[in-house]
Simulated scan of single mutants.
Amino acid sequence: MSKKTTVKHIALTIACAAVLAACGGGGGGSTSTELVDNAVAARNVMNMIEALDEAAEITLEDKASVEAAAQSYNRLSDSQKSLVSKEQKDKLEAALNALAAASAAGTSTDSGSTVDTSEISDNNSLAPLHLPTPLHTSFISSSAAQQNNPHMQLRTIDGKPALRSDQAGLIRTLASNKNSAVAIDAVTLNNTTTVDSSTEVGFTTPFSAISKAFSGGTSNEDISAQTGDDPNTVFSNVKTSFDARIVENYKKLEAAKTTLEAAEKALAQAQTSGATEEALAAAQKARDEALADKVKIETAYNNDRLLRSGLAEETANAVSALAYFKKDKNGLVFDKQFDGVYIIQFTDGTRIVLHDPAAAGWTYQTFAHYVDPKNGITHGYQSIGDETAVS
C-alpha cells in the first residue's frame, strides 16, 4: 500500500468510526457515552499506529505520519491511553526512535514540519455521480459486498470494557428485495468433494422480528390471518420469521376444534344410545385423541403468539430509545438523512439497528449499531455495503 493510500485509509477509518459512534444508537446514559467516546478516541490513535511501517523501515518520508500518531496519542486522556495495547505503544516508541535516528543522520530538510500534505493530491470533492435517489422502499442488495470492515465492538473482557476491531462484524451478507425484510445469513459448513456427494452441517438461527421505523411511526404488518379476523383489521409493528407457522397452526387449531366437537358429540351419542362396550371405547378413544391433538396444537400456537408479542415489545422499546429521528416541539427531526432505520430483534437478545440508506440517498453503503449479549458485546458498530474498487 502506498503512503498516499495509507493516509487516505486512516482518514476514512477515523471518519467512519466517529460517524458510527455518534449515530449508531440512542439512549444508554452518560457512562455508556463516555465509554464509547474513550473507545473511539483510542481506536483512532490505534489505527494511526497500525498504519505505520515497522521501525526498521522508517525513513524521513514517514515523518508526518509518525509525528501525527505521537501527537494524537499524547492528547489522549489516561483512560483513553489505557485502551491502547502495549504492543502498539512499543511500536510507536520504536518508530519515534527510528525517525530521530534518521533525522540525526543529516537527512532532514525541514525539522519544523509536523504535517506533510505533499502526498495528498486529491483534496477536491468527488465529482457527482448523478444517480437517481433510491426509493424509500429500496435497500442495498449485494452478494459480493465487503461487510466486515470497518467495525468496532465494545466488549466486556476480564470484567472490564475493551474496544476490539479484530472480531468479525455481526452482519455478514445483505439480501433484500424492495420493501421486504433484511436477511441476515445463518452458517452452513460443507465438505463437498463432488457435485453429488457432500455433507452439510446447518446451524439454526434464533427466531427474529424486523420492523422499519422513522419519525412518522413504524411499519405495520397485517397479522389478521393469525387470529382469523378479516384482512387488514389486526396489525403489528413487526414481521417475524415464524409468522407463517402461526397462521398454519391457527388453521390446524380451528380444524382440531371442529374434530374435537364432532368426537364429543359422537361419544355423548354412544353413551346415551346403549352402544356396545367396544363402540363406547372406540368413541372415547377418538374423543381423547382429538382432545390431545387440539391441546398440542393450541400450546404451540399460544407459545408462538407469546414469543411474537415479546419480540414486538422489545422492538418498540428499541424504537423509543433511538434519539436521532425524534421530533422536537416544532415537529422537526434532528437530521432528516438519518430519519429511518430497520430494527432486527432476535429471541436470544441480539439486536441490529440498521440505518435505512434510502433516507440519506445512499446507494452502496450504510451502517449499523448492534448488541450481542450472548457474546458480551455491549455496543457494536459496523459499516456495510459495496466496497469501492481499488482502481
Rank of each mutant, 00 (worst) to 15 (best):
T276A: 13
V371F: 01
L20A: 15
A39W: 05
C23H: 15
K336A: 13
V295Q: 12
H130Q: 06
S72L: 12
I10K: 05
N38M: 09
A323V: 02
L35E: 08
S65Q: 11
H151E: 12
E264W: 13
P357H: 04
Q382M: 02
G202S: 10
K285P: 08
V182A: 08
K3R: 12
Q226W: 02
D372L: 09
L60Q: 10
D243M: 02
V187G: 03
A17W: 05
L129S: 09
S2P: 12
Y324V: 01
E87C: 03
A15Q: 09
S30F: 13
S32I: 11
A39T: 10
D328I: 03
V319C: 04
Q226C: 00
C23F: 13
S273F: 15
G340N: 03
A368N: 09
Y250I: 06
V333F: 06
A95V: 08
G361D: 00
L170E: 12
L129I: 04
T192Y: 14
I352C: 06
V36C: 09
D348K: 01
S219F: 05
T33Y: 15
G216V: 02
Q153R: 10
A162H: 12
T31K: 15
T117P: 03
D62Y: 10
D229T: 15
K252P: 04
V182T: 05
G27L: 15
S85V: 14
A244E: 15
S32Y: 11
A321I: 00
N44I: 09
N177I: 11
G106A: 08
M46H: 07
T258H: 12
K239S: 07
I184K: 02
I377A: 03
T204F: 03
K91E: 13
G106K: 05
T173C: 14
K160G: 09
T218I: 00
L354Y: 07
I377T: 06
L354K: 01
H136E: 11
T204N: 05
K89R: 12
E277I: 10
K3T: 11
A105C: 11
F214P: 01
A270D: 07
N149F: 15
A281Q: 07
A318C: 10
E119K: 02
K86C: 07
S108W: 10
L12N: 14
D335P: 05
L126F: 14
D328L: 08
I14T: 11
N179M: 06
T204W: 01
T347H: 01
E254V: 10
G202L: 08
L332M: 10
E221S: 13
R305S: 06
S79M: 10
I246P: 00
I120D: 07
L280T: 11
S77H: 05
G331K: 02
E264Y: 15
Y324N: 08
Y250L: 06
G361F: 03
D335A: 15
A51V: 15
K212P: 06
T240A: 03
R305H: 06
E57G: 04
Q153G: 08
N303I: 01
A316Q: 09
A68N: 08
L126Q: 11
A104F: 05
A268R: 03
I343N: 01
H355G: 04
A51G: 07
V115F: 13
K265T: 14
S121H: 07
K3S: 13
S309M: 05
L35I: 13
K374H: 05
